[in-house]
Simulated scan of single mutants.
Amino acid sequence: MSMVVSPMLTGELSLVEPGKRILKSTILTMNLDDGMQIRYTDAKRMGQIYYLESDRLDEITRVADQGPDVLDAPLNLPDFRAALKRYRGEVKGVLTRGQLVAGIGNAYADEVLWEAGIFPFRKVTRLSGEEVMRLHEATYRVPTDAATKLQEIFGADHPRKERKFLSVHGKSGSDCPKCGSVISSVKSRQRDTNFCRSCQPGTMFE
């Protein structure tokens, strides 16, 4: 049997001692042979937990459709370009869907697109060859640099939700680190998107 946890936005697994206070957001507790516990918490209850036979994992849609992890060996530019051609939606939605690459959520999609200088609501079919090249580079470099930075600051046991060091996400009203313009915020599909209108020019309707 196998267990698959899809934590979504607020789900989190923690290794704790049995005596530690159980939070209201605790969904599942698993007792280990060494006396420790693994607890799954999810404040917004958006995640999913699957427990099924190991040979049925491909029946889980999010697992079967998931792309390669963004922190693994990156796709080369030709393969990335070919994979991107399968999609027709907005570039931020393509990044966060997890099918092109897995592991980029709302916050890091903002960071990737700001680094690449691409308007978040741009259709992927409208991206130029140069923009695809910049997107490819930023897609892998931004999460890798962030993981390295978090480990340098906090060590291996770093807080998963640390966002203070990000450049644009959650920084609405602040100055853009590149050009000094004000960081904008647009709420779309129940999530905030932060970007610089000067560094990432574009319109909502194309």
Rank of each mutant, 00 (worst) to 15 (best):
R21Y: 13
I153H: 03
E90I: 14
K178D: 01
T203V: 10
H158W: 07
D72N: 14
L135H: 12
R163T: 09
L100K: 02
P177K: 06
P143Q: 06
V91N: 07
Q37W: 09
P68M: 03
I153G: 01
H136T: 07
T148A: 09
F121V: 11
E90K: 08
L57A: 01
R97I: 09
E90G: 09
E131C: 00
T10W: 11
I104T: 11
Q66P: 14
N76L: 09
G180A: 06
F80L: 12
M36G: 08
T139D: 11
G93E: 07
Q190G: 15
V168S: 00
D58T: 12
Y140N: 04
V70Q: 04
S167A: 06
G117T: 02
R160D: 14
M8N: 14
Q99R: 11
W114S: 02
S188T: 15
R86V: 10
L75K: 02
E115M: 03
R189Y: 15
N76M: 08
T144R: 10
P201G: 03
L95H: 01
V142Q: 07
D34Y: 04
V101Q: 06
A102P: 12
G103Y: 07
L95R: 00
T96E: 04
R126N: 13
T96Y: 00
S54F: 01
M8W: 11
G180E: 07
M133I: 12
V70D: 10
L113V: 04
V182C: 00
S6Q: 10
G105I: 04
V168D: 00
A107I: 04
Y108I: 04
L150G: 03
L28V: 12
G93V: 03
K149T: 15
